[in-house]
Amino acid sequence: MNFIEARKLVHEYIRRDEEGNVESIQTALDHVDIDVKPGEFVAVLGHNGSGKSTFAKHLNVLLVPTEGTLWVDGKDVTEEENLWDIRKNAGMVFQNPDNQIIASVVEEDVGFGPENIGIPTEEILKRVDKSLKSVGMLEYREHSPNKLSGGQKQRVAIAGVMAMEPKCIVLDEPTAMLDPNGRKEVLDAVERLNQEKGVTIILITHYMEEVVRADRVYVMDQGKVVMEGTPREVFSQVDTLKKYRLDVPQITLLAHELRQAGMAVPKGILTRQELVEALCQ
């Protein structure tokens, strides 16, 4: 069974004037079908305004569908009684690291989620330990978040979600505000959680380099899913990606241009290693 199953999902932002009449309707999600299997690492790509963040917010029921259906962990998101179960099982990490850390001490922030769902004290302490360890932040447990780097703050935020022991983590552009080192820290942590703990990962991003590690990629544009496949399948269509205003990693782009210039380079090159091998045959 799929962990996430979206069928013809529609979301409209409706703006009303002061008298409550509809002023404008903006369709942020337009009949979206997305499936994610348990344990998968799925990336959702798209430029700003493509609807990818709106989709992410549905997975945690921060938004509800206007039309269509969405099941998370076999539960219908429109049923009110499923709300807390879904939020607990599909944790969410946001873009701005400062605006999602609630407490003034790292470990107290990680404990915030478990406190909310009523976990006993002893168990909270164990979970805080475990989650901080899983993102490599255990030694900072008594620090103030204000003194941490962006990448470290984001890892604390991930630990805060992990402490609720979710089956899935949704990351909504977690690296957009970080420097290259911070980005790498966060992605490494995410990949480790996926491989070692079997946590389902849904990574929303506009950085193409980040999706190379994913099992599957969805590309969104104007509220629709326009491409789907493994990173290799998606990256082999360089011209289509450019049409959707996405950036192809430099190496993939170089391979593509060499191929167009008539060289025998295969489609969908993802890494330097692959291109070196292709050229040195």
Binding site: R87, G91, M92, N116, G160
Partner: peptide, 13 residues
């Protein structure tokens, strides 16, 4: 606004 969303997402009620 961001913080309210983040708190809700972490089951604060």
């Amino acid at each position: 606004n961001d913080l309210a969303l983040a708190m809700e997402a972490r089951c604060y009620h």
